[in-house]
């Protein structure tokens, strides 16, 4: 894989490549039965061959190939109604924060998920949410689109005040191919985002939320008499930070996360809180699989 111009560095891309291999191998075992059961017999368009494995339907075996090569292959067919994979990345100003940077981290996760989706023959749509607007990456398919997708992510720049509600509702309105949707955001949206998620879900999206927070948001390293400036809104707050204030903040943070978790649980939305301190391979390979986001 070549170097994406601009942003995602080579080391990351190499990592991504390796990831796609790993996930592909994992996916091969995991996704087989699932796709077949829903799309059985409905597809006529040949897509690919695959080694026969115990448990495969013998009717799918290509006997011609068997006669020629004396080996069992299963024919794979393109589904008619393709699975769409939607990745929404919050590109508000508050995302451009933290060490490691939340926005970079979010884009890397988006890149990894998108790459996996593209290489898995799914259709991929993506969007950067900036303010109430949506900067879309149109629905595409095939590995060949991976570079374009990465270019889109690289070019995405953070800015503006998030209005997740509006952005999510707007995305819900414009999309005609509902499917799996992953929202990668810090959810630090003053106007809230619950309605947007509800709207999306009512359109038939199967939603997962990757909640990205920087380490210094979870454990702020602040002390003394401070005037906190919100980088997104420019609002200022006078706080005298000491051990007690920090503990109150942490309690508040946990309560907030619990609230979101409870909301998501109620709607059947997958909720994955992520600290950007977590290596993203770890996130992709383990955390997201644990949460059934990646199969």
């Amino acid at each position: 894989m070549g170097v994406a111009p601009g942003l995602l560095d080579e080391a990351f891309l190499r990592k991504l490549d390796r990831l796609s291999l790993i996930t592909r191998r994992a996916r091969a075992g995991l996704m087989k039965g699932d796709r077949r059961s829903t799309k059985r017999g409905s597809s006529v368009e040949f897509a690919d061959y695959r080694n026969y494995a115990v448990g495969d339907d013998p009717r799918q075996i290509d006997w011609n190939i068997y006669a020629r090569l004396d080996r069992l292959f299963v024919k794979l067919f393109e589904e008619e109604e393709e699975a769409s994979f939607h990745i929404l990345v919050d590109a508000s100003k508050s995302m451009d924060w933290g060490r490691p940077n939340k926005f970079l981290y979010a884009r890397r996760v988006a890149a990894a998920l998108g790459y996996i989706a593209l290489s898995g023959l799914d259709r991929l749509a993506a969007a950067a949410l900036r303010g109430g607007d949506v900067e879309p990456f149109p629905l595409t398919r095939g590995r060949s689109q991976a570079l374009r997708y990465l270019g889109f992510l690289s070019a995405a720049a953070p800015g503006g005040v998030t209005n997740l509600d509006e952005a999510l509702t707007a995305y819900a309105r414009r999309s005609r191919h509902a499917g799996t949707l992953v929202l990668i955001s810090d959810l630090l949206a003053p106007a809230g985002f619950f309605d947007g998620l509800r709207n999306l879900q009512s359109r038939g999206y199967e939603i997962s939320v990757v909640h990205v927070l920087a380490p210094d948001e979870e454990e702020p390293e602040l002390a003394g008499d401070l005037q906190l400036i919100d980088v997104e809104t420019g609002e200022a707050f006078d706080v005298s930070v000491d051990a007690n204030a920090l503990s109150v903040y942490r309690q508040r943070l946990q309560a907030w996360k619990s609230e979101i978790r409870a909301f998501c649980h109620g709607l059947g939305i997958g909720y994955v809180p992520v600290n950007t301190g977590l290596p993203f391979e770890e996130l992709i390979l383990h955390r997201l699989r644990q949460r059934k986001l990646v199969k």
């Binding site: 508050s94 602040l222 401070l226 005037q227 906190l228 980088v231 997104e232």
Partner: peptide, 10 residues
């Protein structure tokens, strides 16, 4: 002291 943070929401 003025200190920027990602969000003052919390």
């Amino acid at each position: 002291q003025e200190t920027p943070v990602s969000s003052t929401l919390l």
